[in-house]
Computed example of a mutant assay.
Amino acid sequence: MVVEESDQISGIITDRDLIANLLTEESELSVLTAETSGDDVRAADVMTRDPLTVPADAEIPKVLRQMNEVGARHVPVVEDGSVIGMITLDDLITHVAGESAHVSAQMDNVAGIIRTESTHD
């Protein structure tokens, strides 16, 4: 979830943020202890502040590098100053795996053609 203040992205809340802040005994906000019910926890208390954002036309390898540099698994996609989506590490891995499978199939096809042509010579 993207958190905005004054039409600007101020943070994001991910499953990892919720687990780290609310479901670990080490956290002062943990709902696992008797001291905290979670009723008074605000988005600002658990969000990742000033997250990495990427434009809609960002190239996948660059996005992967940026995500790796900051340790992000979720990145808001922005266009004309507005959030238009969220890209996740899982999305990118699925995309790259699909591209790799496509390239591999093409290489197998080319190898088959070369084998066929070399046996006819």
Rank of each mutant, 00 (worst) to 15 (best):
T14Y: 02
D15F: 09
D15E: 12
R16F: 04
D17Y: 05
D17L: 06
L18S: 01
I19P: 07
I19T: 11
A20W: 05
N21L: 05
N21W: 05
N21D: 07
L23C: 07
L23A: 09
T24G: 03
E26R: 06
E26P: 01
E26K: 06
S27P: 00
S27N: 00
E28C: 09
L29K: 00
S30M: 04
V31E: 02
V31K: 04
L32C: 03
T33E: 09
A34F: 08
A34G: 06
A34K: 08
T36L: 11
S37T: 08
S37R: 05
G38R: 03
G38L: 02
G38H: 02
D40T: 08
D40E: 09
D40V: 06
V41K: 00
R42S: 11
A44G: 14
A44W: 10
A44M: 13
A44F: 10
D45A: 06
D45Q: 03
D45S: 04
D45H: 06
V46Y: 00
V46Q: 01
M47P: 00
M47Q: 00
D50G: 14
D50S: 15
D50C: 13
L52A: 04
T53H: 05
T53G: 04
P55A: 10
D57W: 08
D57M: 09
A58F: 08
A58L: 11
A58D: 11
A58K: 13
A58Q: 12
A58W: 07
E59F: 12
E59L: 13
E59M: 15
P61F: 10
P61L: 11
K62P: 09
K62H: 14
K62Y: 11
V63M: 03
L64A: 10
R65I: 11
Q66R: 15
Q66M: 12
M67S: 07
M67R: 07
N68F: 10
V70R: 05
G71C: 00
G71F: 00
A72S: 15
R73L: 08
R73F: 07
R73Q: 11
H74V: 07
H74T: 08
V77S: 01
V78N: 02
V78Y: 00
E79A: 02
D80A: 05
G81I: 01
G81Y: 01
S82E: 14
G85V: 01
I87H: 04
I87P: 00
I87W: 02
T88Y: 06
L89C: 11
L89A: 15
L89N: 10
D90W: 11
D91R: 04
D91E: 05
L92Q: 02
L92A: 04
I93V: 14
T94S: 14
H95R: 14
A97K: 10
G98D: 02
G98L: 01
G98Y: 02
G98N: 03
E99N: 08
A101R: 12
H102R: 13
V103E: 11
S104R: 15
S104N: 14
A105L: 05
A105P: 00
A105V: 03
Q106V: 01
M107T: 13
D108H: 12
D108Q: 12
D108A: 11
N109G: 06
N109T: 11
V110R: 06
V110P: 03
V110L: 10
A111K: 12
A111M: 09
A111S: 14
G112R: 08
I113P: 01
I114N: 06
I114S: 03
R115N: 13
R115V: 09
T116M: 12
T116C: 08
T116V: 10
T116G: 13
E117T: 10
H120R: 15
D121N: 15
D121H: 15
